[in-house]
Amino acid sequence: MARVFQRLERERYSLVTVNLIDSHYCSEPAKFIATLLMALNTMMRMSLPHVNVLSKADLLRKHESKLHFNVDYYTDVLDLKYLLEKLDDDPTMRKYQKLNEAICSMVEDYALVSFQLLDAFSTDSMLRLRNHIDKANGYVYKAGEEQTVNSLLACAVGAESEAVRQQNDVQPYVE
């Protein structure tokens, strides 16, 4: 795959890896940690700009009772010690405590993983993901594209408050 990517990049294609992961993996702490590890592995192997996506976000309402934390906890992936505490409640996972701590520490220390939510039935969700992918691969900054200073700044800065991000990204998927 690396040679294929190198060839495409020589041909001046801008590539980005999009890693789709089912959102139901958030319902169990052990599965979510495995998801984090898989995302890190994919990021290292592909050596390309990377976007992790929790797909089927519309089904989060169905699994909301199983979620130990709010949806933004799983998308931002900031403080995993709370997830480790939930793993300690499971007797079968106690023997992997140090391994889980090491994985979570690596993810937290380097802030390498975060997720975007995707509802394939929502045009807004698809467009927000497309914009995020375009930003990741630098498409919005390419010469020769019609651009305005405002559109470049909006893409570069993110141009939305945390309240707007919550309203658009998280609120549609929880009750």
Rank of each mutant, 00 (worst) to 15 (best):
F121P: 00
E101M: 10
E101L: 07
Y110F: 13
D109W: 07
Y110V: 07
Q97G: 12
A111W: 04
L118W: 01
C104K: 05
D109K: 10
Y96E: 11
L80W: 03
A111H: 13
L80H: 08
D119R: 06
S122K: 01
T123K: 09
A111P: 05
F121N: 08
F121A: 12
D119M: 05
D90V: 12
F115L: 01
K81M: 11
M126K: 07
K98N: 13
E108I: 02
L117Y: 00
L83T: 08
E108H: 02
D89C: 08
L112T: 04
M93P: 03
S125A: 09
E85D: 12
D124L: 04
K81Q: 15
S114K: 02
Q116W: 00
L87Y: 03
S105D: 12
S122W: 00
L83H: 04
L80F: 05
L117S: 01
Y96C: 14
Q97A: 10
A111G: 10
D119L: 09
E85P: 04
P91T: 03
T123M: 06
D89Q: 15
L80Y: 04
D90N: 07
A102L: 15
E101G: 05
K81T: 11
K86T: 06
E101K: 11
D109E: 15
L112Q: 08
E108L: 03
F115C: 01
K81Y: 12
S105W: 08
I103R: 06
D109G: 11
L84G: 04
L80I: 03
S105Y: 08
P91W: 02
L117F: 02
D109I: 06
F115T: 00
Q116Y: 00
M126R: 14
N100E: 12
M106V: 12
S122A: 05
M106A: 15
D88E: 15
S125M: 04
M126P: 01
M126H: 07
S125T: 04
K86I: 07
L80M: 12
K98V: 11
S122G: 03
E85T: 07
S105H: 11
K95A: 13
K81F: 06
D88L: 10
P91K: 05
D124V: 02
E108P: 02
F121I: 03
E85F: 06
K86S: 09
Y82H: 15
T123Y: 06
P91H: 03
M106H: 14
Q97H: 11
L117E: 01
K86P: 03
Y110D: 15
F115D: 00
K86Y: 06
